[in-house]
């Protein structure tokens, strides 16, 4: 067994071609998942049991099953059902890319809504009570009082979730998508050099993780700059 440097130099550019797809999967499902998470959060804290209960069931199911199984159910499973094939969603669900986005968004939305809920629950009650005493409406209280503080509180957890979403995008390679992981697996199947190829792609993933963490650390610092005391 030897370490083939040439193969590494040869395969890194090939794998970087897939980085675009990895980022597309990440950003699209992050945007959709965040929207879904906020929607679920609002249902959850609405105080009406017939809105909150289905949300809790949804979160329980999506957090209690492996994301791989969810991807398989959506990609391989749904076409078995005729009404899915006749529905308007079929153009999205017949493509592996659409399925990956749907699965990743539904999954991350469940996790994010719990994170957001943690942030909202962390907001000092006195603030919302004071706002209520000032005659500010429920909606305005949520937008102008609760949200800005809650966002700051849940930012560290949010950043962790972005990293785990990024790691989950690699599972798209199991439904034929050629993201970085998919390309790496193809090269390994051709050359049978798992060490060289997989370790190179590992380094690329590590750099992305590092970039995500640095970005969020910077945002966190900026968002809490009024809290920090001048030295």
């Amino acid at each position: 067994m030897s370490f083939d440097i040439e193969l590494i130099l040869d395969s890194i550019p090939k794998m970087l071609v897939g980085i675009g797809l990895t980022f597309e999967l990440l950003f699209l499902s992050l945007a959709l998942g965040t929207a879904l998470g906020i929607f679920l959060l609002i249902l959850r804290i609405s105080g009406r049991w017939y809105l909150a209960a289905p949300t809790m069931v949804y979160i329980y199911i999506f957090r209690g099953t492996p994301i791989l199984v969810q991807i398989f159910i959506i990609y391989y499973g749904l076409p078995q059902l005729e009404f899915v094939r006749d529905s308007i969603f079929w153009p999205i669900l017949k493509e592996p890319f659409g399925c990956a986005i749907v699965a990743l968004s539904l999954n991350t939305g469940a996790y994010l809504s719990e994170i957001f809920r943690g942030g909202v629950l962390g907001v000092d009650r006195g603030l919302t009570e004071a706002a209520a005493a000032l005659g500010i409406s429920v909606r305005q209280r949520f937008i102008y009082i609760t949200s800005p503080i809650a966002i700051r509180l849940c930012l560290p957890a949010y950043s962790n979730d972005v990293v785990s979403l990024m790691k989950s995008t690699a599972l798209a390679s199991t439904i034929t998508l050629l993201d970085m992981m998919g390309i790496a697996r193809t090269i390994v199947a051709e050359t049978y050099a798992p060490y060289e190829v997989f370790i190179s792609v590992m380094v690329i993933y590590l750099v992305i993780t590092w970039a995500i963490q640095r970005t969020f650390a910077w945002i966190e610092k900026r968002m809490s700059r009024h809290v920090r005391r001048e030295a």
């Binding site: 599972l171 390679s173 792609v201 993933y205």
Partner: peptide, 8 residues
């Protein structure tokens, strides 16, 4: 913690 599980 920074690389996909499937890759490991």
């Amino acid at each position: 913690r920074g690389t996909p599980e499937i890759l490991v």
